[in-house]
Nucleic acid binder design. Structure first.
Length: 826
RNA sequence: GCCGAAGUGGCGGAAUGGCAGACGCGACGGUCUCAAAAACCGUUGGGCUUCACGGCCCGUGUGGGUUCGACUCCCACCUUCGGCACCA
């Protein structure tokens, strides 16, 4: 690659457009990225990037998520692993249907068209995706198995049907999961969410609450694990029963509550039921009925937003009914108030106004007594100005008086248990996963309702998939469009062969994305969702990357799903994603979220057209730390473009050979080895920005070396070879092109990662800062291995140091070899 | 309100107990050019000082502390971002 002949007057310019297209074609034709389940002598490595939703257009965020993932997957491959790096499409969901309702194309046509377009966009990225394993979650070949999983969970007792208050979006005309309600509004359309009762399918994710909570061992960002733990929200406390003074018509004779403060049980002065609590209707006295019903009605209509406003004044109504506190024998009035949540605990709260701020505010407003049962330290016996929630000493608590409240918790709980009035209880904030959607564009729930005696009957596996009919009406009626399709709805009961109706709800799309990574391992299997061979070959995923906005939804659902699959014997291990890395969010040039309405969207296709995929990839990785994201500065990319032009010129316009061995080109080679150490470490630690910076430095050194005169050919060639190998993961096309031009065998992406030679990478001398009293005063060149005595002796010969020492003996000498020397006088 | 993360040049960032500002953008100056662009070279935290080489002081959100030495560790506060939010 050096030239001893006269230099060409005109050097060929770097034209990314032409070479990138050519290499992608060559890679595809040679099956370079085809991944086998097993390769002799190589361990498997499963690298996964979150699959994109089929919105129709790739945005910079997709590139920011996928291009660095690809670089790291390529690096793993060069490090000797058999790497699976698949891609697919999350293709079910509301936008497709909204497009249809808006009078556009059919959801299927809309989605299929988007996939075709996005597949082409993805291919321009130059990734090592194995397209033979592509997954489309809306294809019957895929959702057939999503339905199979539903049946599997049903068999495991993890799917059930329940009537429950649900979040209803009046605009989308559908039920939303708690996670899809943001600040009381619909996550997608921002309409204000109402409450409605409906019969729905749930998954018992709460069965796995403890196991999901135990996530400490996962190699995930700590903050994501913490978010999940907070989301699950484990609370230790007690359950306590209060006897109804008058049993309810259905025979219920007590109200059970969950409390984290059993030590305050003697201070209960009223009970609060959630307005939706089933007992409300039964125990309300005729006298109070009118007021109570009005309140319940108002609470149902009140938006989630209104109910969730924390600074709102407390409201509530007395039911007219009373219960009895077993511990004291006191009569306790039963109120309803919307600060009690129907979906947490038992939907009922024992109110201890002296020691809970919410209860305190309620009691003050309605003139209820506020007896102190936990004395604050130095308490003067006067009424409290606000609830005292800290630990203290139990008072007015009969036989428990004098006990520290923290000990009182266990003592009271033990007493409750002994008397049969309750006992210890662990409560979670996590709710079961509501998966029913009254929508068309999703996987139909494979259940049948028999008109006869059989009740709810699962569709037999050999009748899957329950296919989505193409011809349906997309009227937003509040029912699934499937309910309007008589052809779909009417069927025969699999059990008795009598008339039956199909379930018309479809599944939450998080269901599809809870197992897609399993399917990649065995994407074309027509006989099962995933066979044992591929499952053990690839699962669990070694490295997952994607946005942390999925911390409490997708990532939690997938963990639940995997554990259920494990219990069914389908997958190995306990967790789907051994390692997870959350990349940051890329923002518009103005530092705000990219959006069409703000006009700050940077279309990735334009960047590729202008600069080439390699430049764009490298720039996204160079911007800053991958986990931080940040603004996309359209001006900055030119720096990366200049760098790659310089890299190109190193190969296209080589220096004259015949230079002295051991000269500048030897120094350059030494730097190449040091760069290799840095880049290797940086790739390992996801520090792509500093890896690119290190390669830029090496490139600058090589350019200077070339300009300085003739080089030693062997040293020069080896330096350039190392640079191209290091560059290959980040810029796969230009690395491949220059690799070939340098006469190396196809393909650079199949090469082993080089090993740095410590003898070459070691520095011969370092510039050692010399400090006096911790202040930098001079620098001396010494071998990194120099002893303290040698370094000190040399330092003292320096005029400046000698002057400052002025003959004095340092009180202390601190020497960190290779880093600095500090002479402390004082 | 609670939990978590982060504050460094004009800008993106580097350095996680040892030379603050690597690498890059921008800006300024220069080479080439009829000219411009591109490319290339140089300068670029602030202040003081020197004819000059150089030297000194200040400087990593604010205030304290630990240390020979602090962007880095500790305490308090301010700001920004993310999550949760009447969860009994």
């Amino acid at each position: 690659m050096t030239s001893t002949t006269e230099q060409q007057p005109q050097t060929e310019r770097y034209e990314p457009g032409a070479i990138e297209q050519r290499w992608r074609q060559r890679w595809e034709e040679s099956g370079l990225y085809r991944t086998e389940d097993h390769v002799e002598g190589r361990d498997n490595w499963y690298a996964l990037t979150m699959l994109p939703y089929t919105s129709g257009d790739l945005h910079v965020g997709h590139w920011f998520a996928m291009a660095p993932s690809d670089a790291l997957a390529r690096f793993r491959r060069m490090r000797g692993y058999n790497v699976l790096f698949p891609i697919g499409f999350d293709a079910f969901g509301l936008p497709a249907e909204n497009a249809a309702i808006a009078g556009g194309a059919h959801p299927k046509d809309w989605t299929d068209g988007n996939i075709v377009h996005m597949r082409e966009q993805l291919k321009r990225m130059g990734t090592m995706f194995d397209w033979t394993r592509e997954v489309d979650t809306s294809s019957p070949d895929y959702y057939r198995w999503t339905q199979w999983w539903f049946l599997q969970l049903y068999r495991q007792g993890l799917a059930y049907r329940a009537d429950a208050p649900v979040n209803w979006c009046p605009s989308c005309n559908t039920v939303l999961a708690n996670e899809q309600v943001v600040l009381g509004a619909c996550e997608r359309c921002h309409a204000v969410v109402e409450q409605r009762a409906m019969e729905q399918w749930f998954f018992r994710i709460t069965n796995y609450a403890e196991e999901l909570l135990a996530n400490e061992e996962l190699e995930w960002p700590e903050y994501v694990k913490l978010m999940q733990r907070n989301w699950i929200g484990r609370s230790e406390g007690s359950e306590a029963a209060f006897a109804l003074e008058t049993p309810a018509p259905d025979g219920t004779d007590e109200i059970r509550v969950f409390t984290t403060r059993p030590d305050t049980l003697h201070g209960v002065t009223f009970m609060v039921l959630a307005p939706e609590h089933p007992l409300v209707r039964q125990i309300t006295t005729d006298e109070q009925r009118g007021e109570v019903e009005a309140y319940v009605r108002a609470a149902g209509l009140a938006s989630e937003l209104e109910r969730q406003a924390t600074d709102r004044e407390k409201t509530g109504v007395f039911t007219g009914a009373w219960c009895v506190n077993h511990l004291t024998g006191d009569r306790v009035p039963i109120w309803i108030a919307d600060y009690a949540l129907a979906t947490y605990g038992t939907g009922a709260v024992m109110a201890v106004p002296a020691h809970d701020q919410r209860d305190f505010e309620f009691a003050e407003k309605f003139g209820l007594p506020i007896p102190v049962v936990i004395a604050p330290p130095e308490w003067d016996g006067q009424p409290l100005a606000e609830a005292y929630v800290e630990p203290g000493t139990m008072v007015n608590s009969r036989s428990f008086d004098g006990l520290p409240s923290e000990e009182g918790k266990a003592a009271v709980t033990a007493h409750l248990e002994a008397q049969g009035w309750g006992g210890p209880k662990i409560q979670y904030r996590l709710r079961d996963w509501l998966i029913s959607r009254q929508r068309y564009w999703g996987a139909p729930i494979p259940m049948v309702y028999c008109a006869g005696e059989c009740g709810i009957v699962p569709v037999p596996e050999d009748q899957l998939p329950v296919e989505l009919p193409y011809d349906v009406e997309f009227l937003p009626t509040g029912q699934s469009p499937l309910a309007l399709s008589e052809e779909f709805v009417s069927t025969t009961c699999p059990a008795c062969e009598g008339p039956a109706r199909r379930e018309t709800d479809t599944m939450d799309t998080f269901m599809c994305s809870s197992w897609y990574y399993m399917r990649y391992a065995d994407a074309v299997n027509g006989a099962s969702a995933i066979a044992p061979g591929p499952a053990t070959a690839w699962l669990p995923v070694d490295q997952y990357t994607g946005g942390a906005e999925h911390a409490t939804m997708h990532l939690l659902y997938a963990r639940f799903f995997y554990k259920a699959a494990r219990d069914a014997g389908t997958v190995p291990g306990d967790e789907p994603f051994t390692r997870y890395f959350a990349q940051g969010q890329i923002l518009g040039p103005d530092g705000r979220r990219m959006s069409k309405s703000r006009g700050n969207v940077v279309p990735p296709d334009d960047q590729v057209d202008q600069w080439g995929a390699d430049t764009f990839r490298a720039y996204l990785m160079f911007l800053g730390p991958w986990d931080q994201g940040g603004p996309y500065d359209v001006e900055g990319i030119v720096g990366v473009a200049r760098w790659l032009r310089r890299v190109w010129s190193l190969a296209a316009d080589p220096p004259a050979g015949g230079g002295a061995a051991g000269g500048a080109s030897r120094e350059a080679l030494r730097e190449a080895h040091r760069t290799l150490e840095r880049v290797t470490e940086d790739y390992d630690g996801f520090d792509l920005n500093t890896a690119v910076a290190a390669m830029m430095e090496l490139t600058n050194t090589l350019v200077r070396t070339r300009e300085a005169g003739p080089v030693d050919e062997a040293d020069w060639n080896e330096s350039l070879r190392l640079l191209l190998l290091m560059l290959a993961p980040v810029c796969p096309h230009i690395a491949e092109e220059l690799w070939e031009r340098n006469g190396q065998p196809y393909s650079v992406h199949q090469q082993d990662w080089p090993t740095a030679d410590p003898a070459l990478s070691a520095l011969e001398t370092v510039e050692l800062p010399v400090q006096i009293n911790g202040r930098l005063r001079d620098r001396i060149d010494v071998p990194p291995t120099a002893t303290e005595a040698e370094v000190r002796a040399l330092a003292e010969t320096r005029p400046r140091i000698a002057e400052l020492l002025d003959g004095r003996e340092p009180e202390r000498v601190i020497y960190v070899p290779g880093r600095m020397l500090n002479l402390v006088l004082r």
